[in-house]
Amino acid sequence: MPLVSDPKSKPLPHSNSRSIGIWMSVEGRRPIQPVRVLVSNEALSQLDPTNVRDLYAALEIFDRFRSLVETAASRKFDSHGFDAEKYEGMPTVRLTTDDLT
């Protein structure tokens, strides 16, 4: 089953993992199964290499490419499932540069 977007989920920085995170959910799962999607700042910087590599730039790039990030997260979830590590006890999908190309 694919992941579905939560348009109300605001992207938030995760400084310890150098990533930006949002919430998505598993389509059709009842009760709703939230999934934390974390996309690395490095992966985001590859989407726009001309942009400065700082937190503000990572958030701005995420906003511009949110649809692509969510599609990549759903594709990775469909092929690999959840990551072994959890975020605050919740399942995660972590995206790197390879996942966005």
Score class of each variant (00 low, 15 high):
Gln33Glu: 12
Glu85Trp: 02
Pro91Val: 06
Arg29Glu: 06
Glu70Asn: 01
Leu12Trp: 10
His80Leu: 09
Leu100Arg: 02
Pro91Leu: 12
Pro31Met: 10
Gly89Ile: 14
Val69Met: 06
Asn41Val: 03
Arg66Thr: 05
Pro31Lys: 08
Pro31Tyr: 12
Val69Phe: 08
Pro2His: 06
Lys76Asp: 15
Leu68Phe: 03
Glu88Met: 14
Arg64Gln: 08
Leu95Trp: 10
Ser19His: 05
Gly21Pro: 01
Ala72Gly: 11
Pro49Phe: 12
Arg53Asp: 00
Asp6His: 14
Leu47Gly: 09
Val39Glu: 03
Asp83Asn: 06
Asn41Lys: 15
Pro34Gln: 05
Tyr56Cys: 00
Arg75Pro: 01
Arg29Pro: 00
Gln33Pro: 00
His80Lys: 01
Leu12Ala: 09
Ser25Tyr: 09
Lys86Ala: 02
Pro49Ala: 04
Gly81Asp: 03
Thr97Val: 10
Leu55Thr: 02
Arg94Tyr: 12
Arg30Gly: 04
Thr97Ser: 15
Asn16Ser: 13
Ser9Lys: 11
Phe77Lys: 12
Thr71Glu: 10
Phe65Thr: 06
Asn16Ile: 05
Trp23Ile: 08
Met1Arg: 13
Trp23Glu: 07
Met1Ser: 05
Leu68Ala: 12
Val37Asn: 02
Met24Gly: 01
Ile20Gln: 07
Asp99Ile: 01
Gly21Asn: 10
Arg53Ile: 04
Gly21Ser: 07
Thr96Asn: 06
Asp78Met: 13
Glu85Tyr: 01
Glu42Trp: 02
Ser79Leu: 14
Lys10Met: 11
Ala72Phe: 12
Ala43Gly: 09
Pro11His: 00
Val26Arg: 05
Ala72Val: 07
Arg66His: 15
Thr50Cys: 02
Val93Thr: 03
Asn16Trp: 07
Phe62Ala: 04
Leu44Trp: 07
Ala84Lys: 15
Val4His: 09
Arg75Leu: 14
Met1Val: 09
Val69Gly: 01
Val4Tyr: 05
Val37Glu: 06
Leu59Ala: 03
Gly28Gln: 08
Ser79Tyr: 08
Leu95Arg: 06
His80Cys: 10
Phe65Glu: 14
Asp63Pro: 00
Leu44Ser: 06
Leu100Asn: 09
Ala72His: 03
Val93Gln: 04
Leu59Val: 00
His80Ile: 00
Pro11Thr: 06
Ser15Asp: 11
Pro31Val: 07
Arg66Leu: 14
Glu88Trp: 01
Phe62Arg: 04
Ser25Gln: 10
Ala72Leu: 14
Asn16Pro: 05
Gly21Lys: 14
Arg64Ser: 08
Arg30Tyr: 09
Arg66Tyr: 13
Gln46Cys: 03
Thr97Asp: 13
Met90Leu: 15
Pro7Ser: 08
Asp63Tyr: 00
Thr101Leu: 13
Tyr87Leu: 06
Pro34Trp: 05
Ser40Cys: 12
Arg30Leu: 15
Thr101Ile: 14
Val93Cys: 07
Thr50Tyr: 05
